[in-house]
Amino acid sequence: MKYRRVGNSGLKVSEIGLGSWLTYGTAAEQEAADACIRKAFECGINFFDTANAYNRGAGEEAMGAALKPYSRSNYVLSTKVFFPMGEGPNDRGLSRKHIMEQCEASLKRLGMDYIDIYYCHRYDDQTPTDETLRAIDDLITQGKIIYGGVSEWSAAQIKEAAGISKRLNLHPLVSNQPIYNMFERYIEDEVLKVSEEEGIGQIVFSPLAQGILTGKYKPRTQIPQESRAANDNVNGVINSYLKENVLECVQDLEGIAQELDISLAQLSLAWVLRKQGISSALIGASRPEQIEENVKAVQVNLQADVLEKIEKTLKKVEGFAPLR
């Protein structure tokens, strides 16, 4: 495993991190979580990500239970706040009230004393940004979180937040968590540049495009019965990727991976990690073998001719934007 700093902070995270998967709290799913986290540690992964909104807290509970056997100083954990956690008008967003209450609730669900990175899960246009940042700063001062971050904020919003933090002498944000993969590249336009200027590192999610970039879905064939796309409870955005031109592009990318004697997933993760400013790529896993395969991506160095070939292949789906 290799490790990178998160932005300008001294915090180091594994280039591959492990994110929460959907969980409903069954014994079988907890066993899968335990097995995956055990394999992650064996492979050198030290970064784990969840959120309070993942099944209204069940994701945090599963992650906390799976991490319980390990020394707290040996891993970095992030969780998030923003999405509704109740039916009341103050049970959502980034108000000081909601942030403070949800941080306490997350700590209880995780069974931990502190959170390493606490993310504002989306931008809240109903709350002044300085109110949000002061609340995050106070949680840092109280020792309940160590660093603050944002997720899926625009370049302008990140710039605004950085300016407020400097003006008010608050702890700076250290991380942004955006989606980033071969098909969704909006952060390349402005977010990466602004974040680098402000010392903010990217910890990206969905680097395998909801599993599309593993090659399990083929053009002109039926969706595998055991796959996420076949499950109406969790397929979500993935179905918008299931277009013939996208799947044909994936097939071409798989050919490039075969020429390099690596898997398509490893090619896709190495492609994400090629970018300066990316601190870590978050994978999801339901089986330990998936982790073992994916972490090999950190050893893949894509040469200029391969990157050029990938770009030519991706031009076939230029302008593609999944429905959200």
Rank of each mutant, 00 (worst) to 15 (best):
V6A: 12
L11R: 06
W21E: 14
T23L: 02
Y24Q: 13
E29L: 07
C36S: 10
I37L: 15
C43R: 10
D49H: 05
A53G: 12
M63A: 04
P69A: 08
S71A: 15
R72L: 03
S78C: 09
T79L: 01
T79C: 00
P84Q: 09
E87A: 14
R92I: 14
C103D: 08
E104F: 02
G111N: 00
D116F: 04
Y118T: 00
Y119N: 09
Y123D: 13
D124E: 03
D125E: 14
P128M: 11
T141Y: 12
G143C: 10
I146Q: 13
G148V: 07
A155F: 10
I158T: 11
K159P: 05
K159T: 12
K159W: 13
A161L: 09
G163A: 10
R167Q: 13
E184V: 15
G201Q: 04
I203Q: 04
V204W: 03
V204F: 10
V204T: 13
F205V: 05
L208D: 04
L208I: 07
K218V: 10
R220Y: 14
R220E: 15
E226G: 07
S227Y: 04
S227A: 09
R228W: 07
A230E: 11
N231Y: 06
N233R: 15
L242V: 06
E244F: 01
C249F: 02
E254N: 15
I256W: 05
S268C: 02
A270H: 03
V295S: 06
V295I: 15
A297L: 11
Q299F: 08
N301W: 07
D305V: 07
L307N: 07
L307G: 06
K309D: 14
I310A: 00
K312R: 14
K316G: 00
E318P: 05
P322T: 08
